[in-house]
Each structure stands twice: as C-alpha cells, then as structure tokens.
Design a protein around this nucleic acid. Structure first.
Lengths: 334, 334
DNA sequence: GAGTATTTTGTAAACGATTTCAATATGATT
DNA sequence: AATCATATTGAAATCGTTTACAAAATACTC
C-alpha cells in the first residue's frame, strides 16, 4: 500500500500538499492539485484511516450495542443504522449484550477503547451502570428503553399511549380479562404495562396483579409465563405481550394448550415481524417505525459528535396499531 | 485519557518498560513491574488501540459482510461470529450488502481501509468481483455461498445432499409434482436445485423447467414466484424453497389462494426460524448449524490471520432434516 | 520598482503506541 | 577482583497522517 510520502515524492511536493489536496483545501494551485491527483491515481493511493484517526483522535466508526440481536426489532434497527451511517461515511461496530449488564459495561469500554465517534445503545436496565463510568464527552444515543436519570439523547416509542391503544382495542372488542406479559428491567416494559393499566381503568376495570407478569424479554420466558396464565383457575380472555419474542413464546404456549385464537384467547403484541401476518389468525400488534428509529438515532448521534455541547433531545415516535384476526370481536361462549 | 508517557513518568521508567509490562514481557524486574502496574491503576490507563494498530499495521477488528441482514439465518450467523470474535478479543464491523454486488465491492474496500484483520463474507454472486481487487494477503473466509474459483477458506452446507434428502422426504410421502423456488445468482441456490433434481431422477421423475424458478432470495420474489406456480394449469403438489424468506413469501401466496397445507400443497424449505414451528401446520425444513457455521468461520479467519500462508480449507457442514406437518404423508384426492 | 499584503508551499512536530539497538546493571566464573 | 555472559532498561525510530508555523512565491499598491 502506497503511503502519502510516496505520493508526495511521485508528485514532487510535500506530504502537506498532498494532505491538503485530500482535504480539498482551497489553498492549492490547480496545476499542483492535478499533479497530486494524478500521482494518487497512479499509485492507487488510499489514505490510512488508522493514521488519520490517531491524529484526529477520533474514528469514523460508530458503535451499536443491542440487547438482543435475535429480536427482529433490533435487526431492523441495525439495518437502518447501518444504512444511515454508511451514507455519512461511517461504519458500524455491532455488539450484542444478550440482556446482560456486565456485557453492556464491557462493550461500552470496548467502544471507548476503539475510539468510536459515538455509540447507539439499547440499555439492559434503566440505570445503565456502564454509562456513568464513561467520560462526560462520550457521545451516546439511547434507543428503545429510556434511562430516566441520564442526560443523553434518546429515541423512544410512545410506549404508554401505544399500550393504551392496544389494550383499548381489546376492550372495545369485548375482551375484559386481559393479561399482560411484560419485559422486565426495562422502562419499555414498565411503560407499556402502565398504558395497559390506564386503559383498563378507563374502562372501569381494576388491574389484577395475578394477570401481570414481568419476565425476561425472551421466547422461553414468554412461553413459561403464558403457560402459567393459561393454567390459572380463571384464565385470561386475552394476552398482551410487549415484544415479538414474548409473543412467539405465548403463541407456542397457546398452541400447546390447544386453544383457539381469538375465540378462547386473544393475542396482541408489539413489533411487526415476518411471522405475525403468516400465522393464523394473523396477530394484531403495534408496529414501531423501526427504520425511522434507527435513522433518527444515527442522525442525532452524528449531530452530537459534530457539536458536543448541544442540548440533549428526546425524540418520541408514535406506534401504529395494526388490527388483525388475533383480536377479532369477541363471541361470548355460553 | 492518560497515555503511556504519563504512566512512564508516574512510575519513573521509560515508555518502553511500560510497554513491556503491558505485553507481559519476562524481561522486567518484579519491582519495576509492580511500580508500573500501580501507576497504570492509579491513572486508569488504557492503551490506545488506534496507536497500537498504527504501529502493528493491523487492528483487532474483523468484518462481517452479509448479503441480507433481514434473513434470520444471517442474524444467527452474526450472533455466532460476534460471540466467537469477542472471546478472542476481536470486535466486529457489520455490513449489509442487500444482495447488491456494488455494495459488496464498496464494503470490501471499506474493510481494507479500516485495516480489519480479516473479513467473513457471504458473497452476492459466484465470482465476487470485489474480492479479486484486494491484495492477495487480505484474509477472507467465505460462508454460505461458494466462490468456486477463489482460493479462500470457506464454510458451507452440504447443499446438494440436504436438498436431496428434503426432496426425497417429499417423494416418500407421496408428493410427485414438486416445484422448486431457488435463490438466484448464488451457488447455494444452484446446488440445492441440483440436489432436488437428483432426488427426482432417483425416483424416476424428470425435472420440469416449468416447475423450477430462480428468483432473488427475498420475500417478495418468493411470493410472486409461488403465485405463478400455484396458478399453473397443472399446479404443483408441493413447493420447495431454498431459504426462509422465499418460504415466507410462498406461504403468503398459499394463504392468498386459500390452499390447505399439506393437503392441497405441501411446503418445505431451508433454515429454521421462529415462525416455522409457529405456523400451522409447522414447516418441514433443513436446519443449518448456524452457530457452528459462524463459529467455524471466525476460527478459520483468525487462524489465517495468524498464519497467512496456510493451505486453504473448505469446511462442509451437514444440514438436519426436521420433519413437521407441512409435508405430512399425502392423502390422494379423488 | 520597492514595499506590502496575500496566497501557496514546505518543514517539522505532533498523535500513542511498539521495538531495535545500545547501554547499563547484575550475576557467574575464574 | 577482573572478565565475561546475561538480564534489564532506555533512547530513539517508526507507523501514516494532519496542521501550526515559517518561508517562499506571487499579486497588488503607490
């Protein structure tokens, strides 16, 4: 690989001039610029990004730390972040914490050590212990789950309202005994639960502790929680889960108990997936604007990198209710 | 951030000694080592990886270029690669080509510019144009799809045999008129098609051109191809697709035509997904050992980084046939 | 055409580590 | 105690850029 020195020699100029041509500085005579460009082309020169980063004390890489890469929601986010970052000339380092705060902390340090320009993080918990250890200057955008105490940019869903609308939809379709399986340890799960309870109250119903479960936001936990709910002496008429993995687990449980959807139990959830419209009946859900979340988060991050002192922002996006067969108007049995 | 110089000053030694302590060199007196370690701890010193990379002319980052991040197969691979890389002290740069050879070429250059130690690539086509432009020394492991002419390490599935077994399973269950929807432009699609045709021949049937479609390996294309097959004057009794996205599209088409599975049309595919066992009937498929593919690819890559001249290897892993309801023994109608 | 202002160019010092080589200290051997 | 071998240490070069500063070249003014 040719270096800037060789280009300089070939063009008969100093490395400073080559560097200026590279940076499109106006203070280079056209004749010289031509010579330099010619040398660059002939030697197939490409700047060494590491040297550049060392000098600039910053890379053109951003980090994305997701809490579960198996969750299609985060896959969609990754795609959007990668797209947007690439357009801006940044590449993406991806890490997966598997909902483990220790891994989160480790990866934040990895990011710091890699001198990434900034990090987009879906935190494993509402405090983000690892975040506080970082210097103040470290650019971070939090997505999906809020960290109430942290003064960082965030891109979130209107969780309370979305859950409210989802629950109201069930209530309006005649379901009364509605259970909720919520992701534990995240504000997202709590907020969606709050929206669910608000809707119940608005319709004159009292939330029952027995019908609300906080579990790890994963398939196995959704399956186990759903089984226990379905086995209750007085089982729920509808199940609301707060993400697609919990929904997959719940669906598995419903199938295992041989129950018909929605006659015997309705099912609604968050997050659009390939399968939600393929199962029968298709699943009613709140669709998140995943691409927009990822894109917005990346843009916020790059803005903060450019201007570290700007006031932090909190962008709240609206979910969209997609009504499908799994919550069809209830036909009273008996 | 403290630098090695400050540590050296604090410990009253030269930077060389600090560096030696860092590298666990045996040629440092215990007393000095203690002093250095103390200074490191007190200053919360962490080596600057960029400076290290510049000097070493190599990073501790590997690249993963996948052809479609929405495909759960590649999500699973990413997870495995990320896991394995992390264990070895490497981090992961992720890129998504969307089956676009241009993006592939661009990203390979991005990787080169980023001085990654090596790249794991699922190529968009069987020639990998971008690959040849790279210097010979660039460490690459190809996964999922082979590049017949390239002398690089590869981790692949036994595509022909897997497709053979999948098709044979259909034949043994009484299906005769079997259509195949294959991913175009990849050896994977071609090989799976070959296995399918071999099985037909082994059972005394002649492959029909009409029943074999090569399309982009994506949901929409699977949907369109399946619709056209189902609308044939003499529609197929079974559909075989070569990945889960094509299967999702095919299933959508089957649903749209209101056909029962497997009575009116059976469906089998490649790749396990969340939904394959949740739809009804659940889908018969060949499961790939995704975690092992990703892990093996990463290990091969790091071995090659350590020893660039070692002979290239081609690891072929076996797929596992999971028999489910979508291919239940055929009940002849009429 | 001399003097000044402006533009263009080059020199050399960073950035933060690793490593070669030489110098010094230590220990072993006689 | 002198000599030699060996183990420790440090000075300085290096990786490939960018950029502050100085120097040189050019343009402008009177």
């Amino acid at each position: 690989m040719a270096s800037i020195k060789e280009v300089a020699r070939a063009a008969g100029v100093s490395t400073a001039t080559v560097s200026r041509v590279l940076a499109n500085s106006p203070h280079v005579r056209p004749a010289l610029r031509e010579r330099v460009l010619k040398a660059i082309k002939e030697l197939e020169y490409r700047p060494n990004l590491i040297a550049r980063s060392l000098r600039a004390q910053q890379t053109t890489t951003i980090g994305l730390i997701v809490s579960d890469i198996r969750n299609p929601f985060f896959t969609a986010i990754s795609r959007a972040v990668e797209d947007t970052a690439y357009e801006e000339g940044y590449s993406l380092i991806l890490c997966n914490t598997d909902e483990d705060p220790k891994k989160e902390s480790i990866y934040l340090n990895v990011m710091r050590d890699a001198n990434v320009a900034g990090v987009i993080l879906s935190p494993t918990g509402p405090t983000a212990a690892g975040l506080r250890e970082l210097e103040a200057g470290f650019a971070v955008v939090v997505i999906d789950r809020s960290i109430p105490d942290a003064d960082v940019d965030m891109v979130l869903l209107d969780n309370v309202d979305s859950a409210y609308r989802l629950t109201r939809h069930l209530l309006e379709n005649g379901y009364q005994r509605i259970a909720a399986i919520c992701g534990e340890r995240s504000t997202t799960g709590r907020e969606r639960c709050a929206g669910y309870e608000q809707a119940l109250r608005a319709y004159g119903l009292l939330p029952t502790a027995e019908l609300v479960r906080f579990v790890p936001p994963q398939i196995e936990a959704g399956y186990a929680a759903a089984l226990r709910l379905l086995d209750l002496p007085e089982p729920p008429e509808a199940l609301l889960t707060t993400n697609s993995l919990l929904a997959a687990g719940a669906l598995e449980a419903i199938r295992e108990r041989g129950l018909r959807i929605p006659d015997e139990v309705a099912l609604v959830t968050f997050d659009e997936t390939t399968w939600a419209s393929l199962v029968q009946p298709p699943i009613t859900l709140i669709e998140q604007p995943t691409y927009e979340i990822g894109k917005t988060a990346t843009e916020l991050l790059l803005q903060r990198v450019a201007e570290p002192e700007r006031p932090t922002r909190r962008v709240i996006l609206k979910g969209r209710l997609l009504v499908r067969g799994s919550s069809a108007p209830r036909v009273r049995c008996g």
